[in-house]
Amino acid sequence: MVLEQTITWHLACNTEDIPADGGACALIEGEQVAIYNFARRGEWYATQNLCPHRQQMALSRGMIGSTGAEAEPKVACPFHKKTFSLKSGECLSGDDYVIKTYPVKVENGQVFIGME
């Protein structure tokens, strides 16, 4: 059996709206989505904006970076520095949280977020 997944791409913003090597938040379909412009690596990521630790809408204001031999991309919440993988959404600082991640597509200077 083939599982069919339909992803809808939503226009979030223009590429210059997200600062290089940082993030910003967009409101899409009523959800707060944190979008990260990982300019050093030419990569884009998106996650939920809510930090699950203290339920604060803050991840888009966090610092991004990488960790480990595989250079796992990550974001640190500005409140208590809980860190999360931008790829898997897993918490990297020892807690059991997992945050939602979204696919990102950049076309003609515009940033699109994929939602199921």
Partner: peptide
């Protein structure tokens, strides 16, 4: 000079982040 995103949130927004964001 692109240094904004390497600041902690408080320095990036030149204000102290509080409990409700």
């Amino acid at each position: 000079k692109g240094n904004a995103t390497v600041q902690d949130s408080n320095d990036r927004f030149l204000a102290n982040i509080q409990k409700n964001g």
